[in-house]
């Protein structure tokens, strides 16, 4: 069995199993937590609207903090959007998704994907440099932050190497790329990457809380 067979076979199966296990564990665990009864009367028109509004408004920095956070927010946006385009727009990725869940769509030209990957990688590098050099951010960062960055950046870098056929034979590069994604899948539920699923829930909860009290968020 070659490394590529392993990456496409057993490693993929078990990493997805760990991903599903971990994600469901955390999501179900959070969603079934008991909420304290609030006996006060709601002062907002709609809790759902409040929740949705907060999810959206907080995705943009407030005027007061804009000067200090603009740089961080901008590079975060760049790599988040870049990752979405690369992960869901590249034809080989779409084929994988279709083989897993049966749903597929049309892909983007490979040139667009290569461009986006390079931009994403640059933004990721800028993000980690900022984390390492920013005095406050550095104190706030722990292993989870750095490791989550690593497992996010590694698939982008290895994917670019696959496309460029650079550094090793194609099948080895492809295997390393797939394995790097599998490490991400395994780490995903147990580290900060889980924010991609928990963030809307947390923000929605806050939004609903404030909407009930008639406060603006």
């Amino acid at each position: 069995m070659t490394l590529l067979d392993f990456a496409r076979g057993a490693a993929m199966k078990w990493s997805i199993a760990v991903f599903l296990f971990g994600v469901l564990w955390r999501l179900v665990g959070v969603l079934l937590l008991r909420r304290a009864h609030d006996y006060s009367q709601s002062r907002g028109p709609s809790l759902v609207a409040g929740a949705l509004q907060t999810i959206i408004t907080r995705s943009w920095p407030r005027k007061e903090f804009r000067a200090s956070t603009a740089y961080g927010v901008a590079i975060s946006y760049v790599f988040h959007i870049g990752l979405a385009i690369v992960v869901f727009g590249f034809v080989p990725h779409i084929l994988l998704i279709r083989s897993l869940i049966g749903i597929g769509w049309d892909g983007l030209p490979s040139g667009v994907i290569y461009f986006c990957s390079v931009v994403t990688l640059i933004a990721l590098v800028m993000a980690i440099i900022r984390r390492l050099t920013h005095p406050v951010l550095r104190l706030l960062s722990n292993f989870d932050d750095y490791f989550s960055w690593l497992v996010t950046a590694a698939p982008v870098l290895s994917g670019l190497l696959v496309v460029a056929h650079f550094g090793a034979r194609y099948e080895t590069l492809l295997a390393v790329h797939i394995l790097s994604v599998e490490v991400l899948l395994i780490w995903f539920p147990f580290g900060k990457l889980m924010h991609s699923l928990l963030l809307p829930l947390a923000r929605g909860q806050t939004g609903a809380f404030y909407a009930r009290r008639g406060a603006s968020t």
Binding site: I16, A17, V18, L20, F21, G22, V23, L24, W25, R26, L27, V28, G29, L31, L32, L33, R34
Partner: peptide, 13 residues
């Protein structure tokens, strides 16, 4: 794996 995840999540809650 999914069933185990749900079960442990329910258990934790």
């Amino acid at each position: 794996a999914a069933a185990a995840g749900v079960a442990i999540g329910v258990g934790a809650a």
